[in-house]
């Protein structure tokens, strides 16, 4: 892993950098797997190796490919970095031994999650229990972060102007659209499966690894694939931009609504126990609903991000427009 990162430092070709970053992401994911963190590995694989690579590629396509060999300020940077690193190394000396079962991290709060979560929540995946119930509010925050990013990106990149006239939006994908018929056919077959898989992940999260977030990412990726293969215009016709925004908003609201209903029912915010008469069943319902909210928001924000990036004129098109 360290090697990959060092390579990233030396590379000037940004595309190669991004590819290496993708590899780095996959390595990290497999490392997480080895550390028994299956959920995290799943997420890192889809985010680190998937979405972020994709986004970086799109962004590079819209900007510049080469890094300018500029004068760096390695000395100052090294100094800061060495101080930070040194401090951290210094800090490791009093840490509990790696993997030790009786480290404080494992014996206090986490203990209860492992021992009682099944009785209290009723689902075997402890990570999901903690994520959506014990620390459900963090997850709510996480959804809001995603939503915020989505809004920010629309605010920055949205090309739809107030008058509502839409011209044909130039995309980077026209070439693929025109040339690769094979890809399109394969894609046509693949996409429904991707979407199905996403739904599976969505509703299976309680038992195995997975959940709303991963499902949302996969679902979003499916739609993006569709857009890349069939062109932005068609994709936009299928899924309207403002509709997606509303779905994203709705996801957040759904999550919030669960919380509000739970305190209207006499509990506290996000207290699923009071949703139904049987607390465990209540937890179940609550988790199901909020995961749905997460999935909706994540999927639609990812689509929004992609559409907005792709809808932006690249430098190439700008100069073309000027020439014409």
């Amino acid at each position: 892993m360290v090697g990959v990162v060092v390579a990233i430092i030396w590379m000037k070709d940004l595309i190669a950098v991004v590819m290496l970053l993708g590899i780095y992401g996959l390595l990290t994911a497999s490392f997480f797997m080895a550390m028994d963190a299956v959920d995290v590995a799943f997420t890192e694989a889809s985010v680190g190796a998937g979405i972020s690579t994709l986004l970086l590629l799109v962004a590079i396509a819209k900007t510049k490919r080469k890094e300018h060999p500029s004068r760096h300020k390695p000395l100052l940077a090294l100094l800061v970095v060495v101080i930070t690193g040194g401090l951290l190394i210094y800090g490791t000396y009093d840490m509990p031994i790696f993997g030790m079962a009786d480290a404080p991290a494992h014996t206090h709060v986490a203990q209860r999650y492992i021992e009682d979560s099944y009785d209290e929540i009723g689902i075997p995946n402890i990570v999901t229990s903690v994520l959506s119930s014990y620390r459900g509010f963090d997850t709510f925050g996480e959804v809001v972060v995603i939503f915020t990013a989505g809004l920010g990106i629309i605010g920055l990149l949205s090309t739809v102007n107030g008058t509502g006239t839409r011209k044909k939006l130039p995309t980077i994908n026209d070439s693929i659209e025109d040339q690769h018929i094979v890809l399109r056919i394969v894609g046509k077959i693949l996409i429904p499966f991707i979407l199905l898989f996403a739904l599976y992940v969505q509703f299976h999260g309680e038992y195995g690894p997975g959940g709303g977030f991963q499902a949302g990412v996969i679902f979003g990726a499916g739609i993006i694939l569709y857009a890349m293969l069939f062109g932005m215009d068609i994709a936009r016709r299928v899924i309207s931009q403002s509709l997606i925004q509303l779905i994203a908003a709705f996801g957040v609201l759904l999550y919030g609504a669960v919380g509000v209903v739970s305190f209207l029912n006499g509990g506290t915010f996000l207290d699923y126990n009071v949703l139904l008469e049987n607390p465990v069943a209540g937890q179940h319902l609550g988790i199901l609903l909020i995961e749905l909210g997460v999935g909706m928001t994540v999927a639609s924000v990812i689509i929004i991000i992609f559409f907005n990036f792709a809808g932006r004129k690249g430098p190439q098109q700008i100069s073309d427009d000027l020439g014409a």
């Binding site: 509010f137 506290t268 699923y272």
Partner: peptide
């Protein structure tokens, strides 16, 4: 003190 999700601290937020 307000317990989010109905879980007492330090287990809940």
């Amino acid at each position: 003190s307000y317990e989010l999700g109905g879980w007492a601290p330090p287990w809940g937020i």
